[in-house]
Amino acid sequence: MLERHWTWHRVKEFLIEKCIYLSGVTSIVIVALIFIFLAKEGFALFKTVGVGEFLLGIKWYPISHPAQFGILPLIIGSLVVTIGATLIAVPIGVASAVYISEVASGKIKEVLKSGIEVLAAIPSVVLGFIGMMTLVPWVKAVFNLPTGLTAFSGALMLGFMAMPTIVSIAEDALNAVPKRYKEAALALGATRWQAIWRVVFPAASSGIVAAVMLGIGRVIGETMAVMMITGNAARIPTTIFEPVRTLTATIAAEMGETVRGSDHYSALFAIGIVLFIITFMINLIADIAVHHKAK
């Protein structure tokens, strides 16, 4: 009775196991295929344009004769908008996470949490549209600029888009800190603020770093809203109140007009590789931060 037989139970077990294995492998295969496709299309550019010329060139004239494919203005455009959005989103996002998790009680907490979720659910094109109609004229008027389509407007808008990610993940990290830490701090005569700042916060630091990195990842990858409100001028800005063009917006705006297989087409894929590497690095840092303290 104890030897193995092909019973229905064992067949079922076998099938379920293989199905799970297959789904796991599928996601990896798809990622690999995407990267191979990206690389195949993108690397074709480097037959005619050097890598240094591509990354550090300051002129993006893809349809001139001769065409120039320098993406430095685009990289700087993405960086300016991302750094700006991060500077706005991180302090406000982390502070609201602290408020929701440590200070707010009962009803307020529930209202805030669902409010954040609603904010995360707004499609970016809608936010971009609202930004174009309200934020852009406001920036133009307040700062007395020739146009409100600036890096600053984009940063502000993206800051609000990154916030839900930062708040919800940071809040989870803060909630995961055992209550006994806070209790111990209070029993030592710490005020509520001291307990949060000196004990709860350091204990949640890895999760908060992850929240920030994922928020930044969201900002760098965002396309629609930035395309609508940053002005899309492919030149290096001298202040944040000038139009910029980001890496993502360039791909989205120009892909429809390129001839398949042309240098311009490959250049857009090469931009895709650059973006891929940037977001990969950010996720890697977030991952390291999470696992660093988890030990």
Binding site: R180, Y181, A184, A185, A187, L188, R198, V199
Partner: peptide, 23 residues
Amino acid sequence: MVFQRPNPFALSVAENILFSVKI
């Protein structure tokens, strides 16, 4: 107060001892 489950902070030994002195 000493609690049922040991609850040192997720900080170094020294930081734990000096916590009250600092606050």
